[in-house]
């Protein structure tokens, strides 16, 4: 991984590491249910134990998302969400908290705005970088340039199906952390976390990744505890979106608090 400048995501993960625990990464969509409420929910994430916050851009064709996130992002769009609002959400959260705020987005909205323009505005809003579920390093030429220019992290995904060559290439292309997909599938809560996740993390570490966070299917403190034992960070999405849907901002705060209870690495190893 290249580290020519201070990566906000890496710093957040390292702070957690210094406390002897894994980092908690919480996902919520921008503009759900409204732009203002998504800012409040993001702040609640940060204040209750999330070290990094992942703000999703609602998109018309979210092929990596399961029903809960699809329903939320569809609602956000029908409530009038515009892509440029994501910068307001990022700025709103970074103004109120110390958490690193990344944007998770499918690639077409970025391409439509212009990769450079998008990166410039994200950096201006205080964003840490981008997580790109449908952009592999092979197609990321423009994003490499823009992320270097504006000092943004580029978080690519690795999967159980990634070959050693691709894993190696993706680890080298990433900055901030590497997102390890725990299972072959889309976002959504699951009763257990696949054991393949540990293998993917080990392979990414072996390929030279200093920080690897695990996502997909993580929904409760037990999952968090299990993953925190071997990964540098744990990513929770669908469960938080469901909490926001059912119980509003307070429920997000409560769930984040519960999840962060599972973070202690020492506890997991005991």
């Amino acid at each position: 991984m290249t580290e020519e400048f201070a990566s906000k995501s890496a710093a957040a993960i390292d702070r957690a590491k210094a406390e002897g625990r894994a980092a908690l990464v919480g996902y919520l969509p921008a503009g759900y249910p409204t732009v203002q409420e998504s800012i409040e929910a993001g702040i609640a994430l940060a204040r209750n134990g999330a070290d990094l916050i992942e703000i999703g851009i609602p998109y018309s064709d979210p092929v990596m998302d399961g029903p809960v996130i699809q329903a939320a992002t569809t609602e956000a769009i029908s409530n009038g969400f515009r892509v440029a609002n994501v910068f307001d959400v990022v700025a709103g959260i970074t103004a109120a908290t110390d958490s690193a705020v990344l944007v998770m987005t499918y690639w077409n909205p970025v391409m439509r705005m212009g990769v450079d323009e998008f990166a410039r505005r994200l950096a201006e809003a205080g964003g840490a970088g981008l997580i790109t579920p449908d952009l592999v390093p092979d197609e990321a030429h423009e994003w490499f340039e823009a992320s270097d220019r504006y000092g943004l992290d580029r978080v690519f995904l690795v999967a159980p199906s990634s070959t050693p060559e691709r894993l190696d290439m993706t680890v080298k292309a990433s900055r901030g952390f590497v997102y390890a997909v725990s299972i072959m599938g889309v976002t959504g809560t699951r009763t257990s976390v696949s054991s393949t996740a540990e293998d993917v993390v080990a392979r990414a570490h072996a390929a030279g990744a200093e920080r690897v966070c695990v996502g997909l299917g993580v929904s409760n403190p037990d999952h968090v505890r299990e993953i925190a034992a071997y990964a540098d960070g744990v990513i929770v999405g669908t469960a938080l979106v469901a909490a926001l849907r059912d119980g509003g901002v307070d429920a997000v705060g409560q769930l984040t608090k519960n999840l962060s209870a599972g973070l202690g690495r020492a506890a997991a190893e005991a």
């Binding site: 990596m64 592999v136 197609e139 995904l157 999967a159 199906s161 691709r166 993706t170 997909v181």
Partner: peptide
């Protein structure tokens, strides 16, 4: 090109 999730690249 291939604007696809990494999970599907091997396939």
């Amino acid at each position: 090109g291939r604007w696809m999730p990494e999970s599907l690249i091997a396939a």
